[in-house]
Design a protein around this nucleic acid. Structure first.
Lengths: 215, 215, 215, 215
DNA sequence: CATGAATGAGAGTTCATTCAT
DNA sequence: GATGAATGAACTCTCATTCAT
């Protein structure tokens, strides 16, 4: 579903709505796939529209039938992958389990998802740094995660399991930021820490930071 | 033999070493200053050599008397600022004080220094993301900091003040990363957390994470 | 992996192969024609890409749709002219005629072709001197000619018409070189020798050098 | 002895006359030596004034105290080497010997001198091709040689030793050109012909071309 | 819808030459 | 005379974007 009611003054054809024909739909999808390949390979900055078109096997001009430029196709790419990245597969959150188990589950899923999509995550980090618009997007996405964690802390405090001296929002932000940045360090930049060791340490920091009562 | 293939890349004047005259020294410094202004104003990507030269009040060509391009002058800029950033002014670290006080001092200094140089720090983050060479540089600089913190944790463990179950290196890395990234979030991206609140929360996470014995 | 080092040199469109459309074909040809005009007028060194494009009536950038630079378009120019220069119109070589007649025919054709394309030949000489790549090319082309002459001499020796003390290869090379260089002296540098006198003298040197039996 | 009464409108200081001081004389000579090194190494086109100055160990600006530019210093360089190149060491020409011996002596000396100064000769060829002024110079120098050979042929004809059907001037020019160009092919371009074989063949062509009576 | 040639503004660089010190 | 920093005119080349076919 393309974005609607965007702010662009005179939306290009491709922005206007979905392509009408089946062929158009296919071309658009092909372009997004090609964009992912090229972006992951060359980085956002070095990726040329020309190359994306070439990778997709269409003429350079055809690109503009569907997108207005690099930003637009990148946004479209983000959209197609968001599902997997935004909602990590934490469906079966062990509600009944202890707090530590919940934290482990959340961190484990986050790290796994990150690792599964390293190239993409690296790309997102890069683009967020380069294009303000995507920085905003990234933070919005992140805040869903933060809010969830803030609420988790609040609940634990209410249940008397976590230290009530703690500021739930700031702490949730700091600890989440820590996890996310460590994922970047390890999976993208190659800091040599084995997955399980990393996870254990992050979990322990969370548990200790919240001063969870040991059972 | 008539002519040779392209002759060996002849190192530009600016590569060889420092300028020979006082005037040259001054111009070089002026250029670095101008570069800082332009970089901070336009960002690394949009900064044009031309603008740096103009800002410095020299001819475009003069830039190349001292630097080979954007990367080079940026590297030079980093070097001139390193002093302030690399050695935070924590010389008078209260050795005798408790661990919590030491942590507070370190974090406070880090955050202060970061805040003092926000624009520059934002710039560094950006360039590290764009140019691999600077990512490497950044990590090298960072590791000095990490090592110091790793040793701090080890010492506290030996003194029986910190939990010995903790992995000093990974924990130091995670906690330091957290502080540094929070500084970025708050000072660069504008996440609204007052300085003291931020500091307190980070300190508390450190203290708790290490399970420091409360006196 | 975030970004990669400078991506592999992506072959320019013009390198890949011929233009895909008829229009492109025409433009490419126009550019080569313009290049010839400009090269012949300004010499290889002073010819600017800009001028070639202007002469062709296309935008400067369009040049790069077809060629990577001066060298490339010059190579293309050489190719289009080779036909005329490489195979002098001596098809109807009088096989049955005497050796002297054959030599005369060959030299006459060579000199004629040279004269017909003086400007171009001058250009080739110049470029061969400037760009090693073309020197190699020139020699390759020349060797076809030399080989033919070497074989001619061998045949004459076998038929008992030419002195067998003669080294066919070196002699063919020396005499061919002489003809070619004299053409340069006379037609390009303007050494004042009438065509027929030049031809007669060169012929006589060939005939004498091979000690051809006079019938 | 610098050139006098040249046509330059406002001769630079260095062109005006010889440097006054001993130091100036030395610097000038050093520059010419450096120019030779750089020209031979990089070719005329790629040689930069800057590099010549650097090679000479003087400041870039000092170059202009003595020369007006590349052409000027090249001219000066030519002048300093002319002696060796212009008058090959054919002093002891065997006057009494037979014509064949004289030809051998002349060719041998020419080839030897050429080989001794390959780099320089290659340079001269290149510059003659690039700069019209030097082409003129080269031809002037060459004509001395041609004239001598023309006279040699005339003498032999008068003595009844050489064929009188031959045009002395054109033949002398053609044969001399042949020798000179073969030297270029073999010594500069690396055509693989051993010195003695080359010489013998050239001699034989001369002898046959003139139809010298065998003794 | 697709094609791909054409456009053209603009950045980076080089280096011969000048000139204040 | 010597120095070497400063100058600035040229030129090359790139690539997003348009548009006629």
């Amino acid at each position: 579903m393309p974005r609607q009611g965007a702010s662009a003054p005179i939306p290009a054809v491709g922005q206007d709505g979905a392509p009408r024909s089946r062929r158009g739909l296919r071309t658009r999808a092909t372009l997004i796939g090609a964009a992912r390949t090229v972006f992951e390979r060359d980085g956002y900055l070095d990726a040329r529209i020309t190359d994306i078109a070439k990778e997709a096997g269409v003429a350079a001009g055809s690109f503009y039938t569907y997108f207005d430029g690099k930003e637009e196709i990148f946004a479209a790419l983000v959209e197609t992958v968001q599902e997997d990245m935004l909602h990590p597969h934490v469906r079966e959150r062990p509600e009944g389990d202890g707090a530590a188990a919940q934290i482990d589950a959340a961190n484990r899923e986050y790290l796994r998802a990150y690792k599964r999509n390293v190239r993409l995550m690296a790309l997102f980090e890069q683009v967020a740094q380069i294009d303000e618009e995507f920085e905003v997007l990234r933070r919005k996405r992140g805040h869903a995660f933060i809010t969830r964690n803030t609420n988790l802390i609040r609940r634990l405090q209410e249940e008397g399991k976590a230290d009530t001296d703690i500021d739930p929002r700031v702490t949730a932000l700091a600890l989440s930021t820590m996890v996310s940045r460590m994922a970047y360090l390890v999976f993208v930049l190659g800091e040599r820490i084995p997955f399980e060791r990393l996870l254990e340490n992050l979990n322990m920091i969370w548990v200790n930071a919240l001063r969870l009562e040991e059972p």
